[in-house]
Structure formats: C-alpha cells, structure tokens
Amino acid sequence: MSAEAMPGKRLPQEDTGVHRVEGAISVVLRVGVLLSVGVIAVGLGLMFAHHPGYGSFTGHFSYHRLTSPSTTFPHTLTQLGSSLSKGNGRGIVVVGVLLLIATPVVRVAVSVLAFVLERDPAMTAVTLVVLGVLVLSFVLGGQLG
C-alpha cells in the first residue's frame, strides 16, 4: 500500500458528497475481495488436504477428471449446503466465488444508500434501477439454470 504514501499526489480535496460515496465503494470492494480470496484459499487448502492424490508427489491423478464437461461440483444452493456439511473443500471454494460475485452487487446497493444520504435523487434513481436489474437477473437466472 505504498501508493497512498506518495507525496504531492493529491490535490487538497474538499469532503464533498461524491468523495464520501467513493470512500464507501472503495471499502466495500476491498472487503469483498479480501474476504473471497481468504475463503477460496481455505477451500483450496482443504481440497488438497482431503485428496492427497491431487498433489504432484503422490500420484498421477490427471486434472482432466476435474475439468471435463462431466465433472461434478456444487452449482445449486442445495448441493452447496450438502457439500459444506461434509466439510468439502470444493464447497468452500464455491462460497468464496459466490462472495466474489456478490461484491459488485453489494457495491451497487451501498451506492444507492450513499446517494440517498447525499440527497442526490437523480443518482439514487440511477443506482436503484441498476440494483433492480441485478436482483432480477439473479432471480431469473436461478430459474433458468
């Protein structure tokens, strides 16, 4: 994080509305990213711990079995639940990936709130429409799959 410490980088900036919105969005993105990377790393670790054959030292288990069209992994919430209850590493990775996918959605939701607090009705409406379309896409997407 050395870039922040660069001298003479910023103009003296007034703490106007849009800068507070920027701050909130930046925090949401950073938290989402760190959280999902952490969860994915734990899941990966568990997966390799449960399957010693996946490592390069103990056998020749080809990765193709895990990446072919016929491979199985949780892709509904029910499957995810059962995978997690077995302490399955792959299920935990999926949770991390879902956190990653949720990050932009949360970012939009937070910007709606931020614009409401800044009393900016036009941008509140804009962000609300985006949030609505996103929510709709997840609802419809769930039925489509």
């Binding site: 899941g43 997966m47 990765y63 895990l66 990446t67 491979t71 992994f73 949780p74 892709h75 509904t76 792959r90 990775v93 999926v94 990936v97 879902l98 996918i101 997407g141 769930g142 489509l144 799959g145």
Partner: peptide, 10 residues
C-alpha cells in the same frame, strides 16, 4: 453458476 459452468477447481 446455475448452469454449472463455474468449476471451483478452475
């Protein structure tokens, strides 16, 4: 995700 295109190993 619902279509099963997001393989956790990848």
């Amino acid at each position: 995700f619902a279509r099963g295109q997001i393989d956790p190993v990848i």
